[in-house]
Design a binder for these strands. Sequence first.
DNA 1: CCTCTTTGTCAACTTAGAGTCAACAGATGT
DNA 2: ACATCTGTTGACTCTAAGTTGACAAAGAGG
Lengths: 299, 299
Amino acid sequence: MKKQVSLADIRTFVVLAEQGSFTKAGEKLACSRSHISKQLAQLESSLGVSLLIRTTRTQHLTPQGEAFYERCKQSLNGISHAIDRVVESADSLTGNIRINCVGGYIAEEIIASLISDFMVQHPDINIELDFSSRRVDLVSGEFDFVFRMGELTDSSLIARKLTDIKINTYVSPKYLAKHGKPNEPKDLLRHRCIAGSLRNWTFIHDNNHKKVEVTVAGNLTCKSGRVMVSSAISGNGIIRVPELYCQTELAQGLLVPVFEQWQVEPTPFYLVYLQDRHQPLRLKVFKDYVVEHFISYLI
Amino acid sequence: MKKQVSLADIRTFVVLAEQGSFTKAGEKLACSRSHISKQLAQLESSLGVSLLIRTTRTQHLTPQGEAFYERCKQSLNGISHAIDRVVESADSLTGNIRINCVGGYIAEEIIASLISDFMVQHPDINIELDFSSRRVDLVSGEFDFVFRMGELTDSSLIARKLTDIKINTYVSPKYLAKHGKPNEPKDLLRHRCIAGSLRNWTFIHDNNHKKVEVTVAGNLTCKSGRVMVSSAISGNGIIRVPELYCQTELAQGLLVPVFEQWQVEPTPFYLVYLQDRHQPLRLKVFKDYVVEHFISYLI
DNA sequence: CCTCTTTGTCAACTTAGAGTCAACAGATGT
DNA sequence: ACATCTGTTGACTCTAAGTTGACAAAGAGG
């Protein structure tokens, strides 16, 4: 009996006070006169206060009703504005998009120019681009999108594959002239290999699809694709990097593939984002843009 | 799908955002987790916006959710305050009471002192006392109470009888000496009578309760009881007024009753107020005070 | 690594109460 | 006096608020 006031009743009261008639209020709220009447009766009962003195032809607010109306109207307007703002923010192409990209070559080259072009098309969207490679938590809300290589298992995330990154084993002609050419993966054990984060290199034979894993040795370990490539060109050893990392060097003949029959399993490249039933439009637009145009940036 | 946002859902969202857990919010709102979940899902769906990113163990507001929360919280607080104020105003002995009194003697003497004493007991209640005798509309909200003589029929009003006003026919000994004494009502036709608003005087015989109506004549018509009394004392004619109007004059022998066997039907004196299911406490207190103490002011 | 607990979600169900309809009574205009 | 408008009431319907219980995911804490 005390404080269980229905907000719907209050809304009805406010409309009623403005319309000055149960019938009109009913039209406004798309419901019957009787229901208006009941809601008001219920509201007054739960407040223990008469808000509206009414006869069949005339009605006016009590002093308390007037005060109550003013306050409630303000508050309901506030809520209405809040709703408008929120809907607007969801439908408009403004606001921030925060993106993280597992660093390196591809990111800086491709993603950066992809995003630049996106920003030209959507000048009101602000992009925060982060290349730090630390573990990033999408769920924490720090980022809206993350570009990632390799698998990612998390039920609340969506990983949209953008492409398979073709990885291969390369070496400089200079190195070959000096150390000879390996014919199969296990030969690598007798060669100097420049490794990124992984030293377990897996190869698949073209014909029988047999997998071979080799733990390579070498005196250089480096996570930068740039450094690896230039080091390989200098003849320091054999690298296994995405083809993208050294397309120009391959064209110039500074590097050549080591094997013909053995391939490296391609690594998928993902755009990862939160599974969100009500994705703001700007995020959806960005996602669609990336999915559609990503390929065309791969030279 | 557009704007049909349930206010209850918003309230739930606000509580949920504050509690940081569906379970706690459920306790706070005295309902089940599932329901909280449904309400939030429904709210997000009708807004088309995700407000809260949630896993089973962690949750946090989206940027839009945060903005929405802030605004809504404010507004809901506003409504909550409005409710508090209104309930408080109904339960507290403060505020105004606006009273109209059909003017004249009784009002000025009795009602005024009655109200004075009431105000002493309730110093925080402010009283607006109005003696204008114009037709007053309680329903218009201009007054909370009206003191009235005589019947009043209006279904939306309550007329609480305070007393029967004893009315009688008086004359000065001086007049009697000059014109003789009437023995029954119809004798009045041959006398000079001082009338208020009514010239149709009705009398009832003590024994057989027979009613007799006489349309009296006279060269003075006056609505002021004071004037009528003093005029009668001067020997100008016969008056028919409430006994209250001339108690002291009767005691001093300046006026005497005309008839012994014929009475004037007493007029009820009412406190009239709006039929209000949720009467503010100050009005109820006033009503009770008047009903209880009125008699004691009748000398 | 495993279990135990707790979390939010979902589907199926129950039921309170939102809302309607029709009959009514008071007020107003004609 | 009549017709027509008003808000109210009580009986009715049926939506949607809210529950229950099973479930999967995610920590917590060994």
